[in-house]
């Protein structure tokens, strides 16, 4: 589904992403871990064609994401608030995303019903524009808007970082559910080793732009990661 060929991106002469080869199959939930500056967000931006690669290419469904727009049809992503439209109410934003993905209002309403526990009463009918929501609630809107799209690729940058513990657990449950229901590529990054080993079938460890470990998750993975991050 996603193939990385020798991708490289440099800022100020320093390579921040430098991945020779990577292949991700449908049905894989891939977790990206690494300290700040490892290049996780930059890699996601390359995947979404939001920055120009200095060398190499990323293929999505067999086509280079740079220069093609086909991937937009089956890819949903939430990296930061730059993906939200601050002057819309959450409902308007969901309808907007729904419309772009050919989902009717009734469809969206039905979907939102199932999300009521996730929002915990603070997002829907809140009488606020998204820009006035708290950071955590903005995150919930972003994640929900991704799940609303019927996609084959889902990209979330540090989804657990801004969520309260209950919502973190809910999100983990939902990620597991969608993986059993539809076979798609899920890419998430996180600093929470517990969560990420709990939800991902494969872990990629990045350091200074390079992929230094590619692990199939098993009972040893958490220990291995903890050993790496130990000071």
């Amino acid at each position: 589904m996603i193939t990385v060929n020798n991708i490289g991106k440099a800022y100020g002469g320093e390579l921040v992403v430098d991945i020779e080869a990577l292949d991700i199959q449908p049905g894989e939930t891939v977790g990206l871990v690494g300290n700040n500056g490892a290049g996780k967000t930059t890699f996601f931006r390359l995947l979404l064609d939001l920055i120009r690669a200095d060398r190499g290419e990323i293929l999505s469904g067999g086509r280079n994401v740079a220069g093609s727009e086909e991937w937009k049809r089956y890819t949903a992503a939430y990296l930061d608030e730059g993906f939200l439209i601050g002057y819309l109410t959450p409902e308007e934003y969901f309808y907007f995303v729904g419309k772009l993905n050919n989902r009717s209002r009734a469809d969206v309403d039905e979907f939102l019903q199932t999300f009521a526990p996730f929002f915990d009463g603070a997002v829907l009918k809140s009488g606020k524009y998204i820009r006035d929501l708290s950071k955590g609630n903005q995150f919930k809107v972003g994640i929900a808007a991704c799940l609303l799209q019927d996609t084959q690729v889902l990209i979330l940058d540090e989804p657990f970082a801004n969520l309260d513990p209950t919502t973190q657990m809910r999100l983990i449950g939902m990620l597991r559910d969608i993986q059993t229901q539809r076979r798609m590529v899920v890419l998430i990054s996180s600093h929470d080793l517990n969560h990420i080993t709990g939800v991902c079938s494969r872990i990629l460890l990045m350091e200074k732009g390079k992929l230094i470990k590619d692990l199939r998750t098993n009972s040893e993975t958490l220990h291995e990661l903890e050993a790496y991050f130990k000071v």
């Binding site: 939001l50 937009k72 995303v97």
Partner: peptide, 14 residues
């Protein structure tokens, strides 16, 4: 500009 990242990765042809 505040949500241009979102616009460019949304399911929307340029």
């Amino acid at each position: 500009s505040s949500h241009f990242d979102g616009m460019m990765s949304a399911n929307l042809q340029v």
